[in-house]
Design a protein around this nucleic acid. Structure first.
Lengths: 228, 228, 228, 228
DNA sequence: GATGAATGAGATTTCATTCAT
DNA sequence: TATGAATGAAATCTCATTCAT
C-alpha cells in the first residue's frame, strides 16, 4: 500500500522545512560583512544572541549582554544589525536552515505504508524540535507578544495544514480513512497535537521519553484517522 | 453504560477550574482598598491592566499605560499594587472566577456514554476558552517568558492529565478503549490537541467554526481511543 | 502728509510681530504641565535651553547640559519635550511673544510722514533685534542647516515683503516714490538691508552705535525710494 | 566722469577674492598625497565632502557619509585629513579658487561712470554668488556656529567696507553723493543688502530673476547715495 | 595606500518608583 | 487617597577614531 502524492506531515510549527516560508521579511542585510573577520564577528553575535535569548527571553534580553557574550564592543552590534529584532531574524534563519537538513526525509511513498510515513514524520519532527526546544520557547513568547508575529505563524500553520488536508482527503477518497472527519480541521488538530506535545515535553520538561512520545503520537494519528 | 469515577476532561490549560491551583502565590493584598472610592480605583486599574496586557503583552506593557487607561494618576497604582506582577495576579484571578461560572459541567456519569461526556467536555472547554482568548495569549506569553510560570503550568497540566489517565485506564480495563495506548501520554496528547486548537482558533484567528471544531475534536478523541 | 493704509515696515526677519506666523507647527503640547510646580520646571527648562543654545549652538548642545542648567534630572526633560527640536520651538515661541510687545508701534498714519514711520519702524526693529541677538544667531544656524527651516523662513520673509510692496506701490502711485523701482524687489532688498545690518552689528559685533545705525538705515531707505 | 582710486564694490561676503584672507589657518597639508592614486582619492573625498556638506550641513554631516559618497573606505579619510574641519578647509579653498576666476572684474575707472561701476560690480557679485550658492549656506552655518568663524567673517566684511567707505567719501567730497550719509555705515549697509539678497534669491530660492535683481539693487545703490 | 571592521566614550531615551502636595 | 511631577539608573544607539590586514 502506498500514500498518494500528498505527503502526510506532522506538527504545525516552524519546524517544517519542506515548504519553507521565511518568518520575517529578509531585511537581514543591514550590512553584510565583507571580510572573513567580519563574518566571524557577525556569526559570533548571532550565536551569542541565541544564547542570551534562550536564557533571558527576547524581551528581557539586553543588547549589551549579547555583545558581552560575543566578546565584542557594543558598537559592533550596530555594524551588522539595526536592533534586537533584526538579530532575532538572523537567529531564526540560522535555526531554520539548520532544521531543513535533519528529519523530514523525502520518503519514497511507494514503499511505505501511511503508518510508516506518519511514524517517520513524527520521529523526525520531534527530534528536530528537541534540538531547538529553547528557541521554540522564544518563538512562543513572541507569538504571544507581537500580533504581527502571531499572524505570520498562523499563516504558516495554514500552509502546512493545507498539505495534510490533501493527504487525508486522498486517504478518505480511497476508503482508507474515516470519511466522517473534516479533513482540514483534523489535519490542523493532529498537527497541533504533535507540535504541542513536543513543546510540553521539551520546553516544559514533562517527563516522557522521546521514544514513547513518538510511538503514542503515531498510534493516536492512526487511530484518529481510522486508517485501513 | 457509564463512565467510571475517573471523569474525562479535555484540554490541558488553565481553563480547568475544578482542581484550581493559584497561579502565583497570593500576595495580592498589598493594600486592600478601605473605602468605596478606593475599591472603584482598584477595580478600574485591574480592568485597565487587562486591556493593556491584552493589547501590548505583559512584558512590553508600561505601568503608565495602565494608569492612563484607568484614568488615574501614576502614583495611585502603588496604592494597591507593588508592581506589574501583582496586578497581573489580580487580572488573572478576576478572569478565573469569571471562567468558573460557565465552566466544566458536573456531568452525571451514569446517564452518559463516554462519547457524550467527551463531547460535553469539549464543548464546555472550547466555549470557556473563547471567552478568555485574549487572556490566554498573555498566559502563553508568561509561560514562555518565566520558568517559574512554566513549571507551574506544567504541574497543572499534569494534575489534569492524571485524572484523564485514570479514566482512560478504566476504559481500557473494561475493554472499551485501545489497550495498546499509553494512557498517560494519550491523555496528555489529546488534551494538548484540544487546548492548542482552541488557541489556534480563538487566539490566532484561524477560521474554523466553534461547532465544527467541537465536533471534529470529539470525533478525533473517540477514534483515537478506539472507543467501543 | 500721511502714509496710506499699507504700513511700511523694516527688516525681513522673524522679528516682525504684526502679522505673526508661527515658525514651526505648534506641537509644543507634548505634555502641558498641570501643576504650578510643573509649569515652573517647564519654564526653567526652556530658559535653560535658551542659555545653552545661545552658548553652544543648537546642534552642538546636549540635552544633559540643558537639564543641568535647569537643575533637574535628565528624565524631567522628557516630561515636557520629546526631543531637542521641540524645546527649541518653545524657546522661539517664548522669544516671539516677548518681541510682540517692544517696538513695532501701531503708528497712527495720519499724523506721521512716511519718513517718520520708517524711522520708528527701524528703531523698533533694531531695538528688538538687539535684545534677541543671540537667539538670532541660532535661527541663522538652523536656517543654514535645515532645509525645512529655510523654506519656512523664506515664506515669512515673503509675507513681510508683500506688505511693504503694497506700501511702496502706494507711494509710487501717489507720486511720492521713485516710479522706476520694482516695488517687490525693492521692498525685499531694503528689508534685507535692515535685517542684515542688525545681524552684523549685534551678532557679529561690528562696532556701530545703535543710534547711528538707525539714522543711516532710515536715510538710506528714504533716499533709495526717493521719497518726496 | 570717473570713479576715484577707491573702487566701489558690492556685497560683504566671502565672494570678494581681491583681498583674500584665508578662512582658517592653513593646516590643510595633513598629509599631501604622494602618488597619483592618492591624489585621486583625496580629490574624490573633497568633492564628496562638498556634496555632503551642502546636503546635510557641516555640523550634521558624518564622516562615514563622506567616505561613502567618495566610494572609499572609512579609514582612507584619515590618510588625508585629521578631522572634518580640515576637509572643510579643502572644500572652501577649492571653491574659492573657482570663484576667483569669474569674479570681480578689474573695471577701468576712467572710462566708467560710478553708476556703471556699481552695475558691473553688482552683476559680477551676483553671478559669482549664484555659482556658489550652496556653499554659501555652509559658510552661513559656520559663521552662525563658530565664534572664531564669525569674527573672521566680520573682519573680512570690514576690510571690504573700508574700501567702499573711501569711495563714498570721495564721491561726497566731490559733491556727487549725499553728504549727510555716514559713509562707513552706508557702505556696510549697501553691501549687506546686496549680499543678503543674493542669499535670499539663490539660497532660499526666492523667485526673482537675476537680471531684475541686479537692476533693482543698482538703482537702490544709486538712489541711496543720491548720485549726481 | 586602501580597506572596512572594531572600538568605546558619550549622547539620547525609557520608565519603574518615589514623594511632596 | 489621589495626584502627577521628579528622579536617575539603565538601556539603546551614534559615530569619530583606531588598527590589523
Amino acid at each position: 500500500m502506498r500514500v498518494s502524492e500528498a505527503q502526510l506531515s506532522v506538527g504545525n510549527e516552524e519546524l517544517d522545512g519542506t515548504d519553507h516560508v521565511p518568518l520575517l521579511s529578509d531585511t537581514s542585510g543591514h550590512k553584510r560583512p565583507l571580510t572573513v573577520r567580519g563574518a566571524r564577528t557577525r556569526d559570533s553575535l548571532v550565536a551569542a544572541a541565541r544564547v542570551v535569548f534562550e536564557r533571558d527571553g527576547f524581551l528581557a534580553s539586553r543588547l549589551t549582554d549579547i555583545t558581552a557574550e560575543a566578546h565584542c564592543a557594543t558598537g559592533s552590534f550596530y555594524t551588522y544589525f539595526a536592533n534586537k529584532e533584526e538579530i532575532l531574524q538572523a537567529v531564526i534563519q540560522g535555526a531554520e536552515s539548520e532544521m531543513l537538513h535533519p528529519g523530514m526525509p523525502r520518503l519514497e511513498p511507494e514503499d511505505q505504508s501511511p503508518e510508516a510515513v506518519i511514524a517517520a514524520s513524527n520521529a523526525a519532527y520531534v527530534a528536530a524540535y528537541k534540538k531547538n526546544a529553547k528557541l521554540m520557547v522564544i518563538l512562543e513568547q513572541l507569538a504571544a507578544s507581537d500580533p504581527k508575529f502571531r499572524q505570520l505563524r498562523a499563516r504558516r500553520s495554514q500552509a502546512f495544514a493545507n498539505r495534510n488536508t490533501r493527504a487525508i482527503k486522498d486517504l478518505q477518497d480511497r476508503g482508507l480513512a474515516d470519511p466522517t472527519l473534516d479533513p482540514y480541521v483534523a489535519a490542523f488538530a493532529l498537527s497541533a497535537m504533535v507540535g504541542r506535545m513536543a513543546y510540553i515535553v521539551f520546553c516544559l520538561g514533562e517527563d516522557i521519553s522521546e521514544e514513547r512520545l513518538v510511538e503514542t503520537l503515531t498510534r493516536l494519528w492512526v487511530n484518529a484517522l481510522r486508517l485501513k
